[in-house]
Amino acid sequence: MAETAAPRLRPMAPHLQVWRWGPHMLVSILNRVTGSGLAVVGLPIVLWWLGAVVAGPAAYARFLGYAGAWYGLAVLAGLTWALVFHTLAGLRHFVMDIGAGYEIDTNKRWSVAVIAISFVLTAAIWAWLLTR
C-alpha cells in the first residue's frame, strides 16, 4: 500500500490539558489533594489539640477560642470533608484493588457517588455538632 505524504495522526498521550475530564479523574486528584491536606494541616491541628489538653485549661481555652471562631470552624469543616472524602475514596480504592469496578459506567457512577456521599456525610456530622 502506498503511503500518502501527510503524516498519520499519532495517538494522543493522556496529557492534562487535552484530556477530557470525568468524575473518576476528579476523585483521583481530590483523593491526593485531601490526603495531602489532612497530613499537612489536619494532623498538626490534632497534635495542637492534644498538646493543648496536656498544657492545661488555659491553653485548651485558647485552642477552643481559635477552633470556635468563624475561621476555625471553616478549617475544621473543610478538614471534616477532606477526611470523609479521603475515607470514601480509599474505600473505592479497596474495591478497585480486588479488580472490581473498572467498567467505565460503574467507575463513573461510584466516582459521582463518592463525591455526593462525602458532602452528605460532612453535612450530617456538622448538623449533629451544631444542633445538639
Binding site: R32, G35, S36, L38, A39, V40, L43
Partner: peptide, 10 residues
C-alpha cells in the same frame, strides 16, 4: 497510623 499513612502518601 496516620503519621505513617501520611508519610507514605506524601
Amino acid at each position: 497510623t496516620n503519621v505513617w499513612h501520611g508519610r507514605m502518601g506524601l
